[in-house]
Simulated scan of single mutants.
Amino acid sequence: MILKALHYRTGEPVEIEVEAGRIARIASAEAEPAERDALPYAAPGLVDLQINGFAGHDFNRSPIPPELPGTVARELRREGVTAFYPTVVTNGPAAIGSQVAAIAEACERDTDAASCIAGIHLEGPFISPEDGARGAHALRFVRAPDWELFCKWQEAAGGRIAILTLSPEWEGERRVHPPLHG
């Protein structure tokens, strides 16, 4: 299949050859002014590093419905987002474990979730306990970094936690740990 579009950076017409669902070739193309005005733009997909939810769907509710990650992936694709990091925020240990496990399970079952979810962003609970810096996160769930607890969550997430928001303020927490992905 060959698609015609305007290159996002140059605004020039291009032909995009697609084979087996993948871009095989991009080449310059000719287009009359009237045709050019009707052509869509072609651009790389957007990547969102923090998606707490989208279009009424929330990654921080418990339990996360099994279809939610795939539904969000499909809705974000329509907006040009081709990769994203569902973000789980500060909460109790069991809730965080349940949420990251639900996202991982969805990636195993739903090809749209698997292809769009680049990793999980864990935003807390290892954040600042100070008012202001903590933002809207519930103070009762904020805690000092805990490597063993993080490893439990990483196991529940199937190794998918890729971004961790961590406050540098905790005393004695400057030691180096093994890499997140072994």
Rank of each mutant, 00 (worst) to 15 (best):
P93S: 04
V47F: 03
G172P: 05
V89T: 08
F84H: 10
Y41Q: 13
V89K: 07
A102P: 11
D112V: 00
V72Q: 08
P93C: 04
E123V: 11
T90H: 03
I127D: 06
A133G: 14
A114H: 10
R74H: 00
W147I: 09
E130Y: 08
E169N: 08
R134D: 15
R61W: 02
G132M: 01
I96L: 02
G97M: 01
A102Q: 12
E173L: 01
E171R: 09
G97W: 03
A42E: 06
P168D: 11
T165Q: 04
T87A: 02
F84Y: 07
P129I: 09
G135H: 07
P145Y: 10
I163Y: 00
C116L: 01
I161P: 13
P63D: 04
C107L: 08
I51C: 11
E169F: 00
E79T: 07
R174H: 14
A162M: 15
I103Y: 08
Q99M: 07
E67M: 04
R77A: 12
G132F: 06
G70T: 03
V142C: 13
I117H: 02
P65Q: 10
G158K: 12
I117P: 02
A42P: 10
A55D: 09
S62V: 12
V47Q: 01
I64E: 04
D58C: 01
G172W: 03
A138P: 12
S98A: 15
G92M: 07
F54G: 03
F84C: 11
S167T: 00
Q50F: 11
R134M: 14
A94I: 10
A157H: 11
L49M: 14
R134Q: 14
A83C: 09
I120T: 10
E108S: 07
A136E: 12
R140V: 14
N52A: 03
P69T: 07
R143A: 15
W170P: 07
A144M: 14
I163V: 09
A118M: 09
I161S: 13
A136G: 14
A95V: 15
P129V: 11
T90G: 05
D58Y: 06
R174V: 04
D48R: 02
G124E: 08
E123G: 04
D146L: 05
C107Q: 13
I163E: 09
A55W: 02
L164W: 05
D112Q: 07
R77M: 13
H137F: 15
R175A: 14
I51W: 02
Y41S: 14
I96R: 05
A104M: 10
A95M: 11
T82V: 08
V88G: 11
